[in-house]
């Protein structure tokens, strides 16, 4: 069994390069999804906190629906559903036969929408934790809404939101494994291919677990460092 370990290396017989490329794809899909989720989360948190009634209702329905559907079904809907729509639309323009769509894009959008529902709650909670006095002071001081967001809201809400955002990021990485069903060659798919062609499923699926553990631990460390730095700048202000 130990001879098989060279198969994980970067040599001529090794799967190292393929696994490394796949791992970067996993990080890329997760990062795109997380960024999309952050944008959606910010908008929905705003809508829920101080948006007009129809938008608030919309944000609530979005949250309930996305948190009530299995992640796998959301990805199926975007990938196979997207293909169905693309094929129908292409048919109207005289193109016949199925149209392929990108697994990367469908996956990133699907996970982004799931992540957005979670990030909405994280950001909303972080905003509500801001002491109202500072907001009143900013208003009385004559700050514009944008200045207030930049100088009062964001610096106070972000440190509170970081642990929650870290959780959402970790979920996005794990959900990205489901994108393998679209045929996108990310970590999950690559270890599956390797396991099949070498007939060493234990070796490669275990290696896959290790790759995910490395990605989640390293990025968790980044979040915790950011949290520590953000909190450090707040400490003296609180003590004063």
């Amino acid at each position: 069994m130990w001879d098989d370990l060279t198969l994980l290396g970067f040599g001529a017989m090794g799967w190292g390069h393929a696994l490394f490329t796949a791992a970067t794809t996993t990080v890329a899909v997760s990062a795109c999804a997380f960024a999309l989720g952050l944008a959606i989360g910010t908008l929905c948190a705003w809508a829920k906190l101080s948006g007009p009634a129809p938008l608030r209702r919309l944000a609530e329905v979005y949250g309930v629906v996305l948190r009530g559907i299995p992640d796998l079904l959301v990805i199926y809907l975007f990938y196979f559903g997207g293909r169905q729509v693309a094929t129908t639309v292409a048919g109207l323009f005289g193109h016949h036969g199925p149209v392929e769509i990108s697994g990367f894009a469908a996956g990133a959008i699907a996970i982004g929408l799931i992540s957005g529902a979670g990030q909405t709650e994280v950001l909303r909670g972080a905003y509500q934790a801001i002491s109202p006095g500072t907001l009143e002071a900013a208003k009385v001081g004559g700050m514009t809404r944008w200045t207030m967001f930049r100088r009062i809201i964001a610096p106070q809400a972000l440190p509170t939101a970081l642990p929650g955002l870290n959780n959402q990021w970790q979920s996005a990485i794990k959900e990205s494994a489901l994108v393998s069903v679209t045929g996108l060659v990310e970590t999950m798919r690559e270890v599956g291919i390797a396991a099949g062609s070498t007939e060493l499923p234990f070796l490669f699926y275990a290696a896959g677990i290790v790759i995910y553990l490395i990605i989640t631990s390293l990025s968790g460390l980044v979040f915790r460092t950011a949290e520590w730095r953000a909190m450090r700048s707040q400490m003296p202000a609180r003590a004063r």
Partner: peptide, 13 residues
Amino acid sequence: GSPLLLQIFLIYY
């Protein structure tokens, strides 16, 4: 720290 899908495949295959 790892995806459930991978855990299922590991135990199955």
